[in-house]
């Protein structure tokens, strides 16, 4: 496979958590439009890969490289990776009490737009988009008003993650 039209390229990645090596020499290339599923037994390092790619504290890369659109991903801050288009759907999304879903999403969307040099989205336009996204993942619009993941059921949390992915 050639590198030229690859979107995400992982080369010989070695990564560890608390000095325990979890990922030992991973190569992966994802081209635009491709869907990949990574499978493996418990402890194989699937979640670790997600965290390493998104730059979570405590996950360290020992060797290898990762590029997104040709840019060195491992060199970027977590938020810059997100702005570059990396989205991690959480296994156990954490609650942020008192911050409404709508507020959180708009702030995220605005941060990403700002990184692309675009103006902040108007509240009215955003509300329209957010309502449409809710509909798509079959969540009542009332969810937008609730605190981020506050008191959501497991299924609701997952749908909420999907909705965020649609909007960002």
């Amino acid at each position: 496979m050639s590198n030229t039209n690859s979107l995400l390229t992982i080369k010989d990645l070695h990564a560890s958590v608390e000095e325990k090596q979890i990922i030992k020499g991973l190569d992966l290339e994802i081209k635009p439009g491709e869907v990949h599923a990574i499978m493996g037994p418990n402890g194989a390092g699937k979640s670790t890969l997600g965290y390493v790619l998104s730059g979570r504290d405590g996950y360290s890369v020992e060797s290898g490289s990762v590029t997104l659109d040709g840019e060195d991903l491992l060199d970027m801050e977590t938020e810059d990776r997100a702005r570059a288009g990396l989205f991690l759907a959480f296994q156990y999304p954490v609650e942020i009490p008192g911050v409404s879903n709508l507020e959180f999403l708009k702030a995220s969307v605005d941060a990403q737009r700002e990184a692309r040099g675009e103006d902040a989205i108007t509240s009215a336009d955003f509300l329209k988009e957010a309502k449409a996204a809710c509909k798509q993942v079959n969540l009542p619009v009332a969810f937008l008003k609730r605190g981020v993941n506050e008191g959501f059921s497991g299924g609701e949390k997952k749908r909420n993650e999907l909705m965020q992915m649609l909007l960002l």
């Binding site: 938020e79 942020i96 911050v99």
Partner: peptide
């Protein structure tokens, strides 16, 4: 979570505190 959605750390803290 906040940073993974593109918020810088300052904005994330102020949002959590405001909440």
């Amino acid at each position: 979570l906040c940073r993974q959605r593109g918020l810088d750390p300052e904005k994330a803290v102020s949002m959590i505190v405001n909440g």
